[in-house]
Amino acid sequence: MITQQSLNQLTFEIIGAAIEVHKILGKGLLESVYHKCMIEELKIRKINFKSEFKVPFNYKGNNVDVDFRCDLFIEDLLIVELKAVSDILPIHDAQLLTYMKLLSAPKGILINFNSNNIFREGQKTLVNDLFKNLPK
C-alpha cells in the first residue's frame, strides 16, 4: 500500500540519484546528457521507471495527440521532469502538474541540473490532492 511516507522516501531516493549525477557531471551540460545519466543511476539503484513515453490525453472519449512526453515516471507514482535551465519558470510547474494530473500521479519533482546544488536550489517537489488523500 502506498502512503505519504513511502512516497516521500521514494522522493528522497530520486533526489539522491540526481545529486549523484550532478556530483559527477556538474552543471553546464544539455538536459539530454543528464537524462541518460539519470536513467543509468536509476538502474544502478534498481528503481523501476518509464522514460520519455508519450502521455495519453483523452477528450470526450477520443485520444488526442498533444505530444506530451514525460521524462521519467517512477514506480507508476512519481513524475520527474528534468531541466538544464537558468531558472525554473511557472511554465515548468504547469508542465509537471499537467503530467501529474493526466497520469494520476500524486507527486512530482522538477530537477534543474543547471544549479550549484541540487538539494538546496535545484529541485522542487509538487503534490496534488491524490497525495493529500494518501494515508500518512
Rank of each mutant, 00 (worst) to 15 (best):
L30W: 03
L30S: 01
E31F: 08
S32A: 09
S32M: 02
I39D: 05
E41Q: 15
L42S: 04
L42H: 02
K43V: 13
I44A: 11
R45Y: 12
R45E: 05
K50Y: 11
S51T: 13
S51E: 13
E52W: 02
E52Y: 03
K54D: 08
K54A: 05
V55K: 10
K60W: 09
G61Y: 06
G61C: 10
N62V: 14
N62W: 03
N63F: 06
D65Y: 02
D67H: 12
F68A: 01
F68R: 04
F73N: 10
F73P: 10
I74Q: 01
L77I: 01
L77D: 00
I79P: 06
V80R: 05
V80L: 15
V80Y: 07
E81I: 11
E81L: 06
L82Q: 03
A84Y: 02
I88F: 05
L89R: 11
P90S: 09
P90A: 09
I91K: 12
I91D: 02
D93Q: 10
A94K: 11
L96K: 00
Y99L: 03
M100G: 02
L103K: 13
L103G: 01
S104T: 06
P106V: 09
K107S: 12
K107I: 14
S115E: 14
S115I: 09
N116Q: 14
N116T: 10
N116A: 13
N117L: 14
F119V: 11
R120A: 15
R120P: 01
Q123T: 14
K124H: 10
L126V: 02
D129S: 14
D129K: 12
